[in-house]
Design a binder for these strands. Sequence first.
DNA 1: TAGATTGTTAATCGATTAACAATC
DNA 2: TAGATTGTTAATCGATTAACAATC
Lengths: 220, 220
Amino acid sequence: MTRDIDKTGLIPGKVVDRLPLYLRIVKSCLNNQVKVISSEELADAAMVNSATVRRDFTFLGSLGVRGSGYEVEVLYRAISQKLGTNHAWPVIIAGAGNLGKALTNSPGFNSNGFSVVGLFDVDARVIGSQVNDLVVQPMSELNETVKDLTNTIGIIATPPSAAEKTALDMINANILSILNFAPTLLKIDKKVRVRNVDLSLELEVMAFYSTQAANKKSEI
Amino acid sequence: MTRDIDKTGLIPGKVVDRLPLYLRIVKSCLNNQVKVISSEELADAAMVNSATVRRDFTFLGSLGVRGSGYEVEVLYRAISQKLGTNHAWPVIIAGAGNLGKALTNSPGFNSNGFSVVGLFDVDARVIGSQVNDLVVQPMSELNETVKDLTNTIGIIATPPSAAEKTALDMINANILSILNFAPTLLKIDKKVRVRNVDLSLELEVMAFYSTQAANKKSEI
DNA sequence: TAGATTGTTAATCGATTAACAATC
DNA sequence: TAGATTGTTAATCGATTAACAATC
């Protein structure tokens, strides 16, 4: 995960990174009719320290009740609001290969306010094909599709070679938040918010720890 | 990205996280016939501080030449060795949906020593279908496929509901390193190295920064 | 020798957490 | 009032980085 954007001025990036995790836990409490949760319980579920939880929540205001804990409903609203997942986020995906299709169908991309409203590709062989309830559109239709939307988030799920051009097309369509799944560092205008997600990077880090473990075993 | 495994004792997790990035940059130098690179140049490419680069490299030994820089070839070998990407890593993927197929075809999963050697599913409708040069196998064949391999890495690309059982199947097949793409925290034996990759989490963090930016704009 | 860049020290910065007064 | 848990302080821990002596 690359840290391309930060500097909120207000709330530390590390805290922001934990909010979605808290949100997921709190939502499962909601589903299970749990009304109140303590920082200790939440900390257990999130695998962090309870002081960290309490400190993190102070960035959302004074939400808890001393002696009792946090009302789940209150937490849910506060975190959603802070993340912005309480309102709609249209998402468009460029690249209708396996990854693009996987993301289009992914529950995380069609809940919490997010919904995939367009799937684009340049390959004539996939344009027109059906994915879920979407039809793959040519990239040339991007502007038209997003022109009446606000705060559209663009996902780059193209091959690395096409990533840069795709980013420019998105910016041209006034998309200012881009999540890039192609393993390339995009060299684009700083006013655009870019987050890079590199799936194979995780694999290499995993290899490191496996090597460590294997070495340790062989020492015995 | 969750920090489930750490505690190398030797090399800090933050440094490990940067090694794959350095490796990619160094590899591109190799491809471009660049023989020597300074910490300053590398830092620029990786978007970190040059002192950080030099400090990170001390964990790999004393690799540089004062007054000149680092030999690209030397760096490449040292980082590959430390990460373990200098030897073969068999990878098996459970879940032959769009995500599983995307990962199977992903260059990052078929380079740097990694190669996907098996793709598994429980759904009779996809078992037997061809993905790249692999045929989707039933989960019941997992043990047989990996029994002669060492250091196999298992990828969970199943729906969340099947993640836990899949993890147990992998452990049963003696797979001790698991990369989990399902949005569930696996409750399994601590001897198994698990890394969780949550794609939608990134989307929520992105939403936060977009909200920030939108708010800032409306303040003007 | 002059110029450059490493490796390392020491300072700084930021994040985590133990501890506890405040208070439900 | 007794018990529990928050919100916050202060200590600790770890990571980053400026600065520079070492040295190619």
